[in-house]
């Protein structure tokens, strides 16, 4: 798999897949997509990059340890639930606000925050599994 073409193309492929994963995540509420799928696409992107360039560049590119990303995602998901409790509704009840940004109404919600948490957990956990298995010296 270590052909020159693959190694050259892999970063672009990864970048595209990451962009696509965010797109899938954001449109998930109204079209097919969502945190699980987006997260898996992003994790696959990392895995491809890792296969092409080795795991060290992936770790450097990620900046954080993938498990830390997953933990942050779990935290976000919990925060999304706790915000609802602060608003005196049951845990994880969806709350929506519609701030206006440059004249465009942007729907923001705790549900979206929760989905982002799911996305990050899936990315982090599965990337860390893949990277662990890609290591040569285990």
């Amino acid at each position: 798999m270590n052909t020159v073409i693959f190694r050259t193309l892999a970063p672009f492929l990864t970048a595209l897949m990451l962009l696509f994963s965010v797109f899938v995540l954001l449109r998930g509420h109204n079209e097919p997509g969502g945190g699980f799928i987006g997260g898996l696409i992003a994790a696959a992107a990392m895995a491809i990059y890792g296969v092409a360039r080795g795991i060290q560049p992936v770790r450097e590119a990620l900046w954080f340890h993938p498990m830390a990303i997953a933990a942050f995602g779990l935290l976000l998901a919990c925060v999304a639930g706790l915000v609802s409790m602060l608003a005196a509704v049951p845990f994880l009840t969806g709350l929506w606000i519609y701030p206006s940004l440059f004249g465009v109404e942007v729907p923001l919600s705790t549900v979206m925050l929760f989905d982002l948490g799911v996305y990050l957990v899936v990315v982090g956990a599965i990337t860390s599994i893949a990277l662990a298995l890609e290591r040569e010296d285990i």
Partner: peptide
Amino acid sequence: IAHGANVVNVIIVDFRGTDTL
């Protein structure tokens, strides 16, 4: 109620959010 058109995703992140958590 949940302002989402993709029913599957709404079930996952809203109606059954605690399960997903």
